[in-house]
């Protein structure tokens, strides 16, 4: 038993010392290795604004499914607006989802859908337009 403990003690000490040395060596290397350092892989998650817009759009999609008593050809857009390969792709999916909802509402409530949205400019501008579009869709569905 004593031998076993002695061996375990020696092994753990050697392993931890080796790891510690490697860590110190990494921290004290001369300057930052350009291959290892730098602002790469900094954006690990989807843009928060895109995630929020998706949730908003899903919420009004649910509302419209509840209120749409006519049982017309409208189908939920939830599956169509899932996360894309990148944020740009996700944004396009969201815009398309908003357009589908828009068309469904415009078909029956033309008089309430007084604004036409045009998605032009940078991604940030498209996000801004989509926010306004979702706000209009929500206000129309709420008022029905």
């Amino acid at each position: 038993m004593k031998r076993l403990i002695l061996i375990l003690w020696l092994m753990s000490t050697v392993i931890i010392l080796y790891a510690q040395e490697a860590k110190v060596e990494e921290a004290t290397k001369p300057g930052c290795n350009p291959k290892a350092c730098g602002p790469h892989d900094t954006k690990k998650q989807e843009a928060a604004v895109i995630s929020t817009l998706r949730e908003d759009l899903k919420a009004i999609d649910r509302k419209w499914l509840l209120k749409n008593k006519e049982k017309d050809s409208y189908q939920s857009i939830s599956s169509k607006i899932e996360k894309g390969g990148n944020d740009g792709e996700s944004l396009i999916k969201l815009i398309m989802g908003a357009e589908i909802l828009d068309a469904s509402l415009r078909f029956r409530y033309t008089h309430r859908m007084v604004v036409v949205f045009s998605y032009e400019g940078s991604n940030a501008q498209k996000v801004q337009t989509l926010k306004k579009h979702i706000a209009l869709l929500e206000s129309v569905i709420t008022s029905i």
Binding site: P39, K44, Q45, E46, A48, V49, N123, A124, V127, Q128
Partner: peptide
């Protein structure tokens, strides 16, 4: 400050009205 270190809150999708940012 380091340039190009965008994340989920500071990306090309944010601050559309801020022309300095873009």
């Amino acid at each position: 400050n380091v340039a190009f270190d965008e994340n989920a809150y500071y990306s090309e999708f944010d601050f559309p009205d801020d022309t300095s940012y873009h």
